[in-house]
Design a protein around this nucleic acid. Structure first.
Lengths: 251, 251
DNA sequence: CTATCGATAATGAATAGACGATTTCGCCGC
DNA sequence: GCGGCGAAATCGTCTATTCATTATCGATAG
């Protein structure tokens, strides 16, 4: 019926973008088409684009298919949609980018290096002020602090300090962390937790500098991660990466 | 027909998660339900969960609705799906997090501060080695380098150096950048470009340290951004943020 | 035993149709 | 002019159905 069934070339525009549309699904073709017409200036930033119904008729596909395409574009911040109003091209270039935070073991092995892990400390102690704030506990609670470092081919790749909340999770024998990184143990124990990350630059402090084999005060990138499960804060981790480490995001 | 039409309570499980499901759509309810059963250990990491058909029957909704829910979970890395094989709970805790990179003006005004912009330099010169690599140009090409800083209530918030490729975009009169930040001009001129970001920690160098009012060598967070349009690299920007600036990601 | 081929099962995508939610817009009474 | 109210437009979601794509498994020919 439709001129545009699965990968039929009906939709392909002659404008000649670099994307190879021969193997695109219909909704991906619609998305690419809309993107092209935005880029070409046909629909400038801030303007309304035609309704789903008009587009579906124009492109010879179902409205649900156009909906899927436009929803994806809205998810990445390229357009904004409101009922009854329509779909508007986002005026500013505010963009959302997806970052993938792999397990450090995978990250290192993906580079083709040999992974190594060393626990450097494992203490029960009252939480630091940052840990108190992140985990919503108070100074009286006793927390577990595990410090460790991760090596790539015997060179330090990252060092880590993680606070674990014994009220949120049953901790194993501490010796386990001598061989198993706490993040991996946590991932196996609590399948899906909700996480909040933040990224900042810091000067390396004493232990961190020693573990990363850099001078005190050297700029390091810190990634903080708070895991919560059912609203209960479970862990607060800080990972430090030496200079020249890059976190890459694609948009 | 279905026991689960739009926000009907049919699906609501008694497990009592913290999420308020009374106002969830059906597909969101399905997603929450699956997530709960993963978290509860019913479907441990690495295991296969029931097929879409079984789930749709079990939950009294259409398979397309289950598909939507499981697709969202796959998009955020919680499950992995393969045709004919099924849907598997991701074994590692590798997660994808969404980061929003707002226009700096918006970022500052959202904090309730007054935005200020100053251009500090605007030069035509051959590209630096990094710019050559990022923009895929060679040393013979003449590029435009604009340096600027952004202020929040008269305190430096971020400084920026951006290389523009005159072969990819028609540049305006350079005086424009005295009042309009290059990123904003770019956003208005090229509606939707594809971007690649990377984030790293560096020590502040001379001009950067002066602009941010910090000592040389102070750790700063650098965000690099390469914009390309139809495969043609358009701009290469490096933004530097002073210590204590945090980039926040929600998962 | 092994390679190949077909049946089967699972997800992926598309369709038409329906209904619901939300916001705008104009009409009407005042 | 103005306030309220209902019609209409538009996106959001759901269903049922069909076909496409991909992988697994087992049977069969050699």
């Amino acid at each position: 019926m439709s001129s545009l069934h699965a990968a039929s070339p009906g939709l392909i525009r002659t404008s000649g973008s670099e994307t190879d549309r021969r193997r695109l699904n219909t909704w991906q073709a619609v998305r690419a088409d809309v993107l092209d017409r935005i880029r070409s200036g046909e629909w400038p930033p801030g303007s309304l684009i035609p309704t789903e119904q008009i587009l579906s008729k124009e492109m010879g596909c179902a409205r649900a298919t156009v909906n899927r395409a436009l929803r994806e574009l809205a998810d990445s911040g390229i357009v904004q949609r409101r009922r009854k109003v329509g779909t508007r091209v986002t005026a500013t270039s505010s963009r959302r980018a997806m970052m993938s935070l792999p397990v450090i073991r995978d990250e290192i092995e993906a580079m083709g290096a040999r992974y190594g892990y060393q626990m450097t400390d494992c203490l029960a102690r009252p939480p630091s002020p940052e840990a108190m704030q992140a985990l919503q506990v108070d100074a009286g609670d006793s927390m577990i602090l595990v410090k460790s470092r991760h090596m790539a081919d015997d060179r330090p790749h990252c060092c880590e300090a993680i606070w674990l909340n014994p009220r949120a999770v049953n901790l194993p024998d501490a010796r386990l962390f001598g061989t198993v990184p706490p993040q991996e143990w946590l991932a196996r124990t609590l399948p899906v937790a909700q996480s909040r990350f933040s990224i900042l630059a810091e000067g390396a402090t004493g232990a961190c500098a020693i573990n990363l084999l850099v001078a005190v005060g050297t700029p390091v990138m810190a990634i903080e991660r708070v895991n919560t499960l059912n609203g209960l804060p479970v862990s607060f981790a800080r990972q430090f990466y030496p200079p020249h480490h890059r976190l890459v995001l694609k948009d």
